[in-house]
Design a protein around this nucleic acid. Structure first.
Lengths: 225, 225
DNA sequence: TTTACTAACTGACACTATGTCAGTATAATC
DNA sequence: GATTATACTGACATAGTGTCAGTTAGTAAA
């Protein structure tokens, strides 16, 4: 295994489900086992038995910490969400040339999702098997929709972006990202992230700021100068 | 149930799995039961027992026609594939103003995928639960990748489209469509197709032919005139 | 050091779904 | 009417899930 998937766990301590936690040590061991498992095998073949065989404790112990495998996946989603949202920061919060910012955010996002690819796929796969987790995944995606929608409205007011209904475009662009990452980075061997990054930048920039600015690495402001 | 999901079956007679078919009548009854079931309930709650309870025959009879639920879903994919590919015809094969053609194709695609939304979602959901079906779904998507890739190359040679690596862009744009449809039309109540159509047209046209042509319904040639 | 208490864990059970197979019933053919 | 083939079924073996009564390990008071 590469890409140090375990440092995910440290950042997950904040995000916790409302079940009574017995031993933090064991909980972590289960999460680590899940990450180890899902790095190389798909969610569909993960069973509670196999998972717990990777730990020191028995199968029933699993149910002390999680209702089922889907709730465990929800915990993993919580970990990833933090990491992924952080990568998008620039375009979301910063001001300045939006083409430069969207480039930065997409570059960060591609990097994170390449690094965590198999986990992202595992979570999305698991989401189709359980209503509760599907809702959590949907809420995660919707968070992005809201953010992108807001940013598009802002850019439209500044006349940086053409007038169009931002909501469905935002949602579609987010689906574009999510499932491009899942299909390109979710299975081994993962695709080279660079062509993916370029394709996404092209599509986002063309759609939001016009194709003139999508051609090269240089920004709108630089071109105007 | 609306949108007459059953006329799908007629077109599926060509596409058949290499299992020995006993009675075409029973096979059709099972497929119809699956369509009825999946129109209103997700794939994850469909069991062989429940499915066969909707027919006149017993549960073991199911295994005379399909290896498992995933193979049944593969048959449904075959049906949908025909319908969906037909909708994309204009932009794929016709010549003429590509903006008009891409509009036509996307309009057709949105219409079909809205009509079959729950089935599209059911197939994509099922694909995550089985390696064989996942491969079939991937092959289906790849068919589109090849087609779009080819068309982009053609337009690049004609200088209608900017120079960029077509393959990853084609793949991403297809993911955009597929998972926009699944999330917007896959669950009841389905979204209004019109805003989705407009968003997709905007993104595809902006990316491929520049944002100037994405603004209104009128085409590139009309504008030049 | 023994005793009492509690948190963490486990063996065994009931349940559900799957896929298979030997065998039955029905229809077709001679 | 006997023979064969086809379509179907009851019953079984297996595998996974979630639960619960009960055991073990750890801690604190007497």
């Amino acid at each position: 295994m590469s890409d140090d998937p375990f440092n995910l766990i440290a950042s997950a301590l904040s995000q916790r489900d409302p079940v009574v936690i017995k031993s933090e040590r064991t909980r972590q061991a289960i999460l680590e086992a899940a990450l180890t498992f899902l790095w190389s095998r798909p969610f569909r073949v993960m069973t509670v038995r196999q998972l717990m065989a990777m730990t020191e404790v028995s199968r029933p112990a699993f149910y002390q910490y999680f209702q089922d495998l889907q709730q465990l996946m929800e915990a993993l989603l919580g970990m990833l969400a933090t990491e992924i949202l952080a990568a998008c920061e620039p375009w979301i919060t910063n001001t300045g040339d939006p083409v430069v910012l969207v480039r930065e955010s997409l570059t960060g996002l591609v990097s994170v999702c390449h690094r965590r690819g198999p986990f992202v796929k595992a979570i999305a796969d698991a989401a189709t098997t359980d209503e509760r987790l599907e809702r959590a995944w949907l809420a995660f995606v919707q968070q992005f929709d809201d953010t992108v929608d807001k940013r598009i409205r802002m850019d439209q007011e500044l006349k940086l972006t053409a007038e169009f209904d931002p909501r469905p475009a935002a949602h579609s662009l987010n689906m574009l990202n999510a499932y491009t990452f899942i299909s390109k980075f979710g299975r081994h061997p993962r695709s080279d992230p660079e062509p993916v990054r370029q394709a996404l930048i092209r599509i986002w920039v063309s759609t939001l700021y016009g194709s003139r600015w999508a051609e090269s690495e240089c920004s709108q402001l630089e071109r105007i100068r």
